[in-house]
Simulated scan of single mutants.
Amino acid sequence: MTAYLLLIALTALERLAELRLARRNAAWSRARGGVEHGPGHYPVMVLLHTGLLLGCVLEPLVAARPFVPALGWPMLALALAAQGLRWWCIATLGPRWNTRVIVVPGLPLVRTGPYRWLAHPNYLAVLAEGLALPLVHTAWLTATAFTLLNLALLAVRLRCENTALAAT
């Protein structure tokens, strides 16, 4: 369990690093005339992702969920692969990457890196990680709840992003 708690703590630190980078990138975008779209869903997203990390810690402790190697190791590999995809997206977008929907008018869509194959590869990473990270330690309630709530949030987010990108 200690190793799993360390994994969750490292994931939380990674999220904090993402938020810091997102603030810097938001300033870059706004300095170039970037406009934020759909800010109303952002607090829900933050709450949901915070809930994921809390659920990952609490469910295994409260419900005495065991580590099941046949499930845990593949889920760890999937969670790590999702992190790799997330950071590939961040590196590809450079200062245009953000946790908010901020579009700089006149900039073309990015069609390199993982964006060659998918319009929104970061959301694939979020879906994979949201399912896999809790299942590393058999937190199936957390995995299920996050996945279902995240699918509803992503429907809103994708509609917002696609509308914002189409308007540029």
Rank of each mutant, 00 (worst) to 15 (best):
G130R: 00
A64E: 15
G38N: 13
W97E: 08
L135R: 09
A119D: 08
L78W: 02
T92I: 05
G84K: 12
H37N: 05
V62L: 15
G40S: 11
R24P: 04
W117A: 01
R24L: 12
G72V: 11
L127R: 06
E161H: 01
V126H: 04
F67L: 11
P108W: 09
L78C: 11
C56G: 14
L61S: 10
W73Q: 08
P69M: 09
L93W: 01
V57Y: 08
Y4S: 15
L158M: 07
L7G: 09
H137D: 07
R65W: 11
W87K: 07
T112F: 09
P60V: 14
G106Y: 15
L80S: 01
R86A: 01
F67V: 15
R159A: 15
W28L: 12
V101A: 09
L85C: 04
G40N: 07
V104I: 14
L10F: 02
T99D: 01
E59C: 13
E129H: 05
N150V: 11
W140T: 12
W28I: 14
T147F: 09
V110Q: 06
L153Q: 15
N162H: 13
G130T: 08
G94Q: 13
L158Y: 11
P66Y: 04
I90A: 02
N98M: 12
R15S: 07
T142P: 13
L154C: 10
V68T: 14
L80R: 04
E36Q: 05
R157H: 03
S29D: 02
L127T: 06
R30Y: 00
Y42N: 05
G55S: 00
M75T: 04
T99N: 03
R30P: 02
A145Y: 03
H49R: 12
P114Y: 03
W140D: 08
L107M: 12
A70Q: 12
H137A: 15
A22Y: 02
L151K: 03
R23Y: 10
A145P: 12
V62H: 05
